[in-house]
Computed example of a mutant assay.
Amino acid sequence: MFKDNHKTIDTLTLEISEDFSRLHPVSSMRVLNLIILKIKYDSLTGGSIHTPSLKLVNNLHYFISGSINLFKKQRISESIESISKKVSSVELLYSVKNNSGNSVQSEIVQQAFHNYHFDYHTVTLKQYLNFFHNNKEVLNDLLKQYEISYEETIKGFLALLYFEFLIDEYGFTKLMKKNKKFLLDDRLFYVYPQRLVKLIFLKMGVDYNKFIRAFFTDLKSHRYDRSIYLTDLYKKNIHSFGVKYKRLLYFPRNYFLLDKLFIQLSEYPMFIKEKGEYLEANTIKVIKELYGEDNVYTNIYDGDGVEKDVIVTFGKYVLSFECKSKPLKEPFRDTKKSYKRLKQN
């Protein structure tokens, strides 16, 4: 493993897991949501050199431990700074490794790796919701394994995202005050009291038990791998949106958690088939509008017998368009292997 200032990705990951082992589970939840809120603040104010990747932080609940190292307890403020800097350092070390060469190939691999593992797409909450609504039949088929419907799933996530607003809307403010020890600045919950969540879910017609079984990890049965790479957490944690601990729930305070549902749907065979047909039909429609129907040819073969989705004659040029409906494959850490895989995409 490459080194930078005597630290490696392996040692930093181990240190992050140790930071969590020094915290009570509820303190870990507080730390994570404070880091997330700081990331959101930094994004509005220009950020700082130690602003960690939101995509990585959204999956750090994997390291929340039910057992605490009583001999090495750590303050919350110290944990926030320590974890934030270490996650940022992991991202920097990957950039250093992938940028070991000055070639265009190296730059392409570095950007692809960074986009895949550290960045979310620029998507609004409304765009996520529209996407789920437009594909609700496929999403319902996907959610059959959890015995929960598309409508209940979306309502459940919206209830958690707009939790404090709904508490006020349904007249549960007295219960909110009774649980003020779980509030940040008397306004936002950093952990959710299950009793309050159940009441709101009941008002919204969401089966609480099914929702929690489908999307939350129960901490009492959770065992984590201390040696896992942070860049593997997203894939490892794809079905876990939060943590259940005794009478509390941890849910990261940002709507990008819905990206996990988006990924599950985009990789679902039924969706890929429908998306492929939809993508090709609409691509051809747009291209014909741009270049004229007489200049567009579909499903023809080149001299090597390879089928081309769309060919366009444009003056002295011939343009070839390929419609790719499958998600791009994960870039390898190894630069040479990664560039080859990117070309295969």
Rank of each mutant, 00 (worst) to 15 (best):
Y120M: 09
Y192V: 08
A159D: 06
Y255D: 07
K203G: 05
E147L: 14
K316I: 06
K244H: 14
L37I: 13
Y162P: 07
V31E: 02
L56T: 07
F211G: 02
A281M: 05
I49M: 12
G276I: 00
S67F: 11
E107P: 06
Q110P: 04
L257A: 12
F314C: 12
I284W: 00
V286D: 05
E81N: 12
G46T: 10
P327F: 08
G315A: 07
F113C: 05
R75W: 13
Q264W: 07
S266K: 10
I167Y: 08
S65R: 00
S67K: 13
F71I: 09
S89T: 10
I76F: 01
I287L: 00
I80F: 03
S221Q: 14
K210W: 08
L32E: 10
D334Y: 11
S221W: 11
S227Y: 12
S106R: 11
Y128D: 02
L183K: 04
D294G: 02
Q194V: 10
K97I: 12
I64E: 01
P25L: 01
S89V: 07
E18R: 07
Y278P: 02
V96G: 06
G205V: 07
F321L: 03
E147D: 14
T217R: 06
Y190D: 02
S100F: 13
Y94V: 01
K177M: 09
D218H: 11
L248G: 00
P331K: 04
E330Y: 09
K246T: 12
K308V: 03
V57P: 01
M1C: 11
S48I: 13
K178Y: 11
L158H: 06
E267Y: 13
S325W: 03
N140F: 08
S88H: 02
Q344I: 14
Q111K: 15
S106T: 12
K73D: 10
V197N: 00
H117W: 09
H222I: 09
E91M: 01
D119Q: 15
P269S: 05
T13L: 03
N58P: 04
L183E: 04
Y339Q: 08
D309A: 01
H222F: 05
T217N: 09
P269G: 07
D168A: 14
Y278A: 10
G276R: 04
P331E: 03
V123N: 06
Q74L: 13
H50Q: 15
G303M: 11
F163K: 01
V312S: 00
K38D: 13
N254R: 08
I39M: 06
L219V: 04
D302R: 02
